[in-house]
Design a protein around this nucleic acid. Structure first.
Lengths: 347, 347
DNA sequence: TTTATGTTGTAAATCGTTTTTCGGGAGGAG
DNA sequence: CTCCTCCCGAAAAACGATTTACAACATAAA
């Protein structure tokens, strides 16, 4: 019989028409079956399902999304994947996505504003439902984003006076909390390692430290050491500091690479954490909890950040037009043994 | 003038027709301009470009891909984002992608075969050009993948006798190398911490260790300790071992969480690495290089893995139909101070 | 001037779905 | 028996881009 044979290329996947032909129904009908718009316990439903299995049919998501003009994809632009904080944020957001039948597409900007701009553009091209952005250093994202009608939410590094939703932690308060903790424990000579100027986050942390120092009654000595963002750089800066200054009671690192650098340096110089010297860092890492003695950390509640941010973006996607807001979440202090009191030191 | 007004919804983005209307040309012509199929320094080209800017037009990637039936998207399914090894692999692959004008979509299976299967299915639905998979524990990926005509490449954890390309490291050889190193340094009582049975990777590593032991002339004592995959579990297992056994000369951890657990435990028990005890781990981490003394590691050359894997997948995408192959890349031993010789110990 | 050739933009077909429209048949009420 | 619903599937339109076919026009060659 000269039936018109399937004309699709041997290399390409079967389409809904192939399924329809095989099941002896129309493409629209197949679509209805697949999308559950009809009960499938009748002969037609079964025939369609069988054809689907036999041909190994998989719906073409591009075509589907195009037609319904919606995408259920959420973009996520982060500075890099290697930072455990970002990595965990990706993971938590992905978990949220799954429960809401969305999908996260994560890309990294490698801290490069150019790359970041390209990524955002690309995501908009995909007509994603919304985008989370952790801005790179000296990011231009804010400009791009304000023009767009795609919902955006900034995470972690929230630009100042942005007319865009932002979700992050209360950096200043967390740092003030830790400083007060150090003061109460009797530390009066404290070294604060910070990244450098220009990052909103670290600036906020520094502010928190300064405020706590200003509010403190007793006289204390606090030195501020900019370290750059590489571990090696931080190590060198700390080394130079210790060579030329009296030994502090405590070291507080405002970002995670500095904490590792400081830890290694203090070990090498023979200080015993929690006895000779206190150490604390912003951001927790696996190694900090498991070395001995464990290193105290200001822990960002990543799961909650993800939760709140997700709710915010979803609300926007669903049409919420209220004024943009910046949500700050409080950190938790994980006071581990590296935070010894001066009394303990003396004893 | 009763010109037919734009009929698009206020909420949706401009289409190529809107641009065409504004520039006074046909959609096809706009397409040609945008895709550089005509020189754009003439009045028409300029008019189109201007209309594009004015309307903020961004090409709809879904529609574009649908029409050309190609996607330049590469899927990547990893067990999780928190493991630094996977994170770095994502980063390196993403870098490769950028230079080839592809795009990586990374998702995680959370070590769950169900989730993994869903992710793979979803990627196939997007008609991605190809997919990298780091299989989860007890993965069913192999079955799914063999049926599909989408090119797949397995990374890191390569299933045995798979009819699919795989790129990973030479686990056995690397471990044998380290063991020989320990033997040469005079260690004769060695504890090997391994994850447990069932993971191809760790099994290979264990084989390498066993082979080296078998080939060694002198009598040595090697204990094998399964630790489970959590840090806490590993810590507990190690603790129990040290309670009930004579002190070993060296500890070799076959995967990264165990290395951290062992490091913390040895510190806590007061051993000085590189003097009382040697420690080495499979997989490098930032903390290992920066603590004091630094911890030796078998380093997987992630950049090269990414490079080779990328080439393999691209070749498949471009139609290479040669027999599937498994490519093994050699690791590098980063012999840091934690690897002391017994002579040093004695001195 | 005529014919061949090349250029360039419009119109229409197409990708694989979903959704709307439409028509035919079944079933119930009058 | 007729009329009116109701249901269900086929047919066709639509999503937004690309690509092919084609017509119009210009240019060059004869």
């Amino acid at each position: 019989m000269p039936e018109k044979a399937a004309k699709r290329q041997p290399g390409s996947r079967p389409s809904i028409r192939d399924v329809a032909r095989k099941a002896g129904v129309s493409p629209g009908c197949v679509s209805n079956v697949i999308n559950g718009r009809r009960k499938l316990d009748d002969p037609i439903g079964r025939a369609v399902l069988e054809a689907v299995n036999e041909l190994g049919y998989r719906r073409n998501t591009m075509a589907s999304n195009l037609r319904r003009s919606q995408s259920r994809i959420i973009g996520l632009v982060i500075p890099n994947f290697e930072n455990p904080f970002f990595a965990e944020l990706v993971a938590k957001l992905e978990q949220r996505a799954e429960t809401t039948n969305y999908r996260i597409v994560a890309t990294s900007s490698r801290e490069d504003p150019e790359t970041e701009a390209r990524e955002i553009d690309e995501l908009v091209g995909w007509r994603v439902a919304g985008v989370f952005v952790i801005p790179s250093l000296s990011s231009r994202a804010l400009n791009l984003v304000s023009a767009s009608e795609t919902p955006f939410v900034f995470l972690d590094r929230i630009p100042q006076n942005a007319a865009i939703d932002g979700v992050g932690v209360n950096n200043a308060e967390a740092c003030a909390l830790l400083m007060r903790h150090l003061f109460e424990a009797g530390h009066s000579r404290i070294l604060v390692a910070y990244l450098g100027d220009g990052i909103a986050n670290v600036a906020e942390r520094l502010d928190g430290v300064r405020n706590a120092v200003a509010e403190h009654e007793q006289p204390v000595t606090v030195d501020y050491l900019p370290t750059g963002d590489s571990i090696e750089g931080a190590r060198a800066a700390l080394d130079a500091y210790f060579d030329h200054n009296p030994k502090p009671d405590a070291v507080f690192c405002l970002f995670n690479t500095a904490t590792l650098a400081a830890y290694g340096l203090l070990q090498q110089r023979g200080f015993v954490l929690g006895k000779d010297m206190a150490l604390a860092g912003f951001d927790d890492s696996a190694w900090m909890a498991h070395v001995h003695p464990p290193v105290a950390a200001i822990v960002q509640p990543i799961e909650e950040i993800a939760k709140v941010a997700w709710e915010r973006l979803l609300a926007r996607i669903e049409g919420d037009t209220s004024a943009p807001e910046t949500i700050r979440i409080n950190c938790r202090l994980e006071a581990r043994e590296s935070l010894a009191s001066v009394e303990t030191q003396a004893g």
